[in-house]
């Protein structure tokens, strides 16, 4: 049996580095070769010489990086070699084109989960457990207070809220992260209730989703709507950062909602000064984190961004060799994370 390679992966000042393969996973600085788990902005930094991702991620990455960037892609489950290190991508269930990156070298395997969830999502293939020696997990919601309601129920609440607003003569402005969350809402909400409009930031990703074969109900770009549009029956999907923008004025009287895992906490919800919080997350909740770690059968667990210290300690107290690994975005406050929670 080959010697296990202790440092097949290490964390250095640019990110998670595989020295044997000469690449980084989701580096936070430009590097020679960046392997990308998914196309959310906090996982993709422009300027690297080469990018490697799973095929459905390509158009999203292209949008972020521009026409010049060198992007190579492979299918889910297909193996590619980098200096003798075997790399493959496996569904993470987070958003379109999200993947766990499996890295294997001399009998040692690492799986870097990127962001993931176990809950069903019609816009991307479901999370697929991959056995490994070391599992690098996120911990955005790594506390037992984070336990998600059934997504179908949450979508049902959104439908009800939308209908109630229609009856009250108000537009329904729903804030959701523009890549992933917005499309998941679109795919799950009842489009027979009324017309759906979008903010430009959402619409650009809708286009890519549709081109990739994800079925979404028809949407219209709000800015192109005629001035006399009756908004009171409409649902408007917008990114959270549009919350304080004058863009909202056109909708007249409206109710606001926000779809995010952070809405599980009352204080965070109230601080956002929105009318309704919907607990809908593209991240794993506490039970799902534990389930994913268990399914990986890893003997070692690295816990990155989020509540990494408590999750690592819990895992260590329950028999795993778990370590909290600092990432660059130290202690992003919950309130910022509401904006950033992809």
């Amino acid at each position: 049996m080959a010697e296990p390679v202790e440092n097949l992966l290490e964390r250095n000042s640019h990110g998670l580095y595989c020295a044997a393969g000469g690449f980084y996973v989701d580096p936070w600085n430009p590097v020679d070769c960046a392997v990308i788990t998914h196309a959310h902005a906090d996982h993709v930094v422009p300027g690297s010489k080469a990018y490697l991702c799973v095929r459905p991620c390509t158009p999203l990455l292209r949008l972020r990086l521009g026409a010049e960037a060198a992007i190579e892609s492979v299918d889910y489950g297909e193996t590619i070699e980098r200096n003798g290190v075997r790399v493959s991508f496996h569904p993470a269930g987070h958003i379109l084109g999200s993947a766990q990156v499996r890295i294997e070298h001399r009998g040692e395997t690492f799986v870097v989960s990127g962001d993931y969830k176990l809950a069903p999502d019609p816009t991307c293939p479901a999370f697929e457990p991959v056995r490994c020696h070391t599992f690098v997990t996120e911990s955005t919601f790594g506390l037992p207070v984070f336990r998600w309601p059934v997504p179908a129920e949450v979508l049902g609440e959104m439908n009800e809220w939308w209908r109630a607003n229609q009856q009250a003569g108000k537009a329904s402005v729903l804030f959701a992260y523009p890549l992933g969350k917005a499309q998941r809402v679109l795919a799950g909400i009842d489009p027979s209730i009324g017309p759906i409009y979008t903010h430009g930031a959402v619409e650009q990703f809708n286009r890519i989703y549709r081109d990739s074969g994800v079925a979404l109900p028809p949407t219209a770009y709000a800015r192109s709507a005629p001035t006399k549009t009756d908004w009171t029956r409409a649902l408007i999907l917008a990114p959270p950062m549009a919350k304080a923008s004058p863009w909202l004025r056109r909708f007249g009287d409206f109710s606001t909602g926000l779809a995010s895992g952070w809405m599980r906490i009352r204080g965070t919800r109230r601080r956002q000064s929105i009318d309704r919080g919907f607990v809908l997350s593209d991240h794993a909740d506490w039970p799902a984190l534990l389930a994913a770690v268990r399914a990986s059968q890893a003997r070692t667990v690295w816990v990155t961004h989020g509540y990494r210290a408590p999750l690592a300690r819990w895992l260590a107290e329950n028999g795993s060799d778990a370590h909290a690994i600092e990432t660059r975005y130290e202690e992003s406050a919950a309130v910022e994370a509401v904006e950033a929670e992809p």
Binding site: I265, W314, A334
Partner: peptide
């Protein structure tokens, strides 16, 4: 773990309920 959760939630009754 209760301490960690309470710090994130900021309200005793709510932390327990969650």
């Amino acid at each position: 773990m209760f301490g960690e959760c309470y710090q994130a939630v900021g309200d005793l009754a709510e932390t327990i309920a969650l």
